[in-house]
Design a protein around this nucleic acid. Structure first.
Length: 192
DNA sequence: ACATCGATCTACT
DNA sequence: GTAGATCGATGTA
């Protein structure tokens, strides 16, 4: 029986959570139908990390990161794209994991429609892409991941090697290997 | 007020 | 491999 992840999954060390999220299934229930995919790439953002949106305190944009764990933090960037994060750690500790790629599972026709792209490997292989494919925007910022609209299902990941690399698109803390993906899912991730 | 730039993606060369 | 899109958040005046 596959279960929705509980609050305790998110209430812990963010790097551990970023690794543990690999293999889990992200589900968005939309009016057009259910869209889901397996999480195959994550990045950890910690409170004192200069690359983290919250490292200089709370603003209107990053407020969700300071809230309860197990909620979504969605932000808009580059004038075009939304990115989805899961808030970790207790309220007041602003940390999160960025969901960077999915292996498409359900609602693939909807994904193709939302993306205007056909190739399966190009539907969710990047944070902006997967948000577009799943129809995720700012209306889901702060959404409870234990609700019925946007949630995460537990699943087993083959206990093979998880690869750790520097995070993508940041200048600071380039020495930190806080981007994770399982070797066997490399075809679905944003970059090798 | 104004300038800069970003946890990106696509199209084009 | 590189440029252009596109706009809100943030920093500087």
């Amino acid at each position: 029986m596959i279960q929705k992840l509980g609050r305790e999954f998110y209430l812990r060390d963010t790097i551990e959570a970023a690794r543990a999220a690999l293999g889990k299934i992200l589900v968005h229930v939309t009016p057009e139908g259910m869209i889901s995919g397996r999480i195959v790439e994550t990045e950890a953002y910690l409170r004192d990390d200069p690359a983290c949106h919250a490292c200089r305190g709370m603003t209107a944009r990053n407020a969700a990161m300071f809230g309860e764990p197990g909620h979504a933090y969605v932000y808009f960037t580059y004038g075009n794209h939304y990115c989805l994060n899961f808030v970790t750690q207790p309220a007041g500790v602003a940390e999160a994991i960025l969901i960077r790629a999915l292996q498409p599972l359900e609602g693939i026709d909807l994904m193709r429609q939302n993306r205007g792209m056909d190739r399966l490997e190009n539907l969710c292989s990047g944070p902006g892409k997967l948000a577009q494919a799943l129809g995720i925007d700012l209306s889901l910022n702060g959404e409870d991941l234990l609700g019925d609209k946007l949630y995460v299902l537990d699943d087993r990941l083959d206990p093979r090697e998880i690869i750790a690399r520097p995070r993508v698109g940041i200048r600071e803390a380039a020495d930190k290997l806080w981007r994770f993906y399982p070797a066997q899912y490399a075809p679905w991730v944003s970059k090798r």
